[in-house]
Design a protein around this nucleic acid. Structure first.
Lengths: 325, 325
DNA sequence: TTGTAGGCGTTATCAA
DNA sequence: TTGATAACGCCTACAA
């Protein structure tokens, strides 16, 4: 691979000059620019980003840590993050924590060692202190780590309210919610809170179920659903904490001969592409996934620039009526 | 951030020595090792990977270019690639080409500039020559670029045969296949070939439909399905080129009042998680996605090591009977 | 307007 | 066994 030196030789100038035209810095005669550009083309020269990064101590890489890209919500989020990062001239280093503390820690370490310019955290297996240490631009999803670490979330509480209202309007009286483990202390647990509160305002109570520590254990969903149908056979309205859980719920209803939306009505959360593909198409609370991804990147970029950014970024949700309500 | 120099000072040795204990090279007294390790810990030192990469001219980064991570198949593939890369000590730079030639080209350029150690290509919008230029370890999915660029694929042809056989065994007589655009010249178009061949062996012909150039345009699927049901109202067996297409097919049937598997039977391809979540669960031809991802990484790693690897890596598919046949 | 030289943080080649 | 010192490829004062 040709280096800046080769270009300088071929163009008959110094490396400084080449570096200048590369970065468009300082005053350069058009003639020189042309000469240098020609040399670069002839050699098919590309500046070595490693060297650049080292020298400028800026890598233009953003690290993204999520539980699993294979989960549709994170897949879509990642896609939007990538797209926006690309627009801003950033590369994306993808890290699946697999909900494993060890891996998440190692990844954080690795990202720091790689001198990424910032980290977007969608995985949250560690304690607050572990995150606070890393002296790096940081943005989280759905988790408030400290008063000055920005986080992006959807209006979880209101989303829960919307779900309850929708189910109740459609005639449901026996409500249940299936969500992630509340001990994780994520903002997404507000979905259940909003749901319960809205139900209470209508004089209804509801059954609240949640997964174990690992919120993405699919077998756990089925077990929970089994329990739900056994303990509350007359359940008629279920608010699932995610569209995936909703899909499992749909499946569980089908396997038990409960019709949807006849016997049981279901509302999901997320609004992933999949939700419209299910039969029947899911009613759900849609998060603005694209806007959230874009915002996360933007918050990193602005921190890199030295700006201080607000802590909370709560984006509105939208009710989508499919055919499960 | 502390550097190797700081560690050296603190430990009262030279940077060379620190570098040695860092890389476990040469002979070092235990006493020294201990001293150095202690200094590193006290300073919370992490070697700068950028500097390392520059010096060794090896970045330990693999670039992955795919059409969209938001497509479930690629999301799952990416997840497995990430996992295996991590095990091998590699980081993953994620690039969504979005089926855009310009973006794909820029990404290739960017990856070379970033001195990635290899590229895994799942996106194929460019011409063969564009890929051959990059003098880098390369692995592709489902595309044969040249005799010595290794590629990973599933047994597409046989998968198509399995699909046909399954449908025919279940009593279908009016067959159709919906696949990607054949001009892309991807191995995945063998799915349709195998399907047609097996149908012919049973004395059946079949309707072959395919998308436009952009194989991931969902609206196009719906248009195709519309046409199919209009032109061949008596169709009773559909082999979809992917599980996503199958999901759209399922939806289209439902909207038109055709029961599945009563009136129409459907077989998908891929075996993504989603396929089991649909109602009814999809019958499909499962690709060994995890093995494919793992193999791709392995092929890069082996090329990095200087080994020469075989060109073709065709992995077996497996028929999964859901409830759509 | 252009060039020289030192630094970014490591590794690697010699000597000692 | 350990330590100077020159790369790795680029950027950037400072000079000219």
């Amino acid at each position: 691979m040709p280096t800046i030196k080769d270009v300088a030789m071929k163009a008959g100038v110094s490396v400084t000059t080449v570096s200048r035209v590369l970065n468009n810095r300082g005053y350069l005669s058009e003639a020189l620019k042309l000469k240098v550009h020609r040399a670069m083309e002839e050699l098919n020269y590309r500046p070595n980003e490693l060297a650049r990064s080292l020298s400028r101590s800026k890598s233009n890489i953003i690290g993204l840590i999520i539980p699993h890209v294979s989960l549709p919500f994170f897949a879509e989020l990642t896609s939007h993050i990538e797209e926006h990062a690309y627009r801003c001239g950033y590369k994306l280093l993808l890290c699946n924590s697999q909900q494993d503390k060890g891996k998440e820690l190692e990844y954080i370490d690795m990202l720091r060692a790689s001198r990424v310019d910032g980290i977007i955290m969608g995985s949250h297996t560690l304690e607050v202190e572990d995150y606070l240490q890393m002296n790096l631009p940081l943005v989280t999803f759905d988790r408030r780590l400290s008063p000055d670490i920005p986080y992006v979330c959807s209006d979880n509480y209101h989303g829960g309210e919307l779900a309850a209202t929708l189910l109740i309007e459609k005639g449901c009286r026996r409500l249940a919610h299936i969500g992630g483990h509340p001990a994780l202390n994520l903002l997404s647990s507000l979905r259940g809170d909003g749901f319960a509160a809205a139900a209470a305002r209508h004089g209804l109570s509801c059954t609240l179920l949640h997964t174990d520590y690992n919120s993405f254990d699919f077998a756990a969903y089925e077990a929970l659903l089994s329990r739900l149908f056994q303990e509350c056979p007359d359940i008629d309205g279920i608010f699932a904490g995610s569209d995936i859980i909703a899909a499992y719920t749909l499946k569980a209803c089908r396997e038990r001969g409960r019709t949807v939306p006849g016997d049981v009505k279901i509302v999901g959360y997320d609004g992933i592409n999949l939700s419209g593909l299910l039969t029947p198409p899911l009613s759900t609370i849609r998060q603005p996934i694209e806007a959230m991804g874009q915002l996360a990147v933007e918050l990193i970029v602005r921190q890199v620039r030295g700006e201080t950014v607000a802590a909370e970024h709560k984006l509105p949700v939208e009710q989508v009526e499919g055919e499960t309500t």
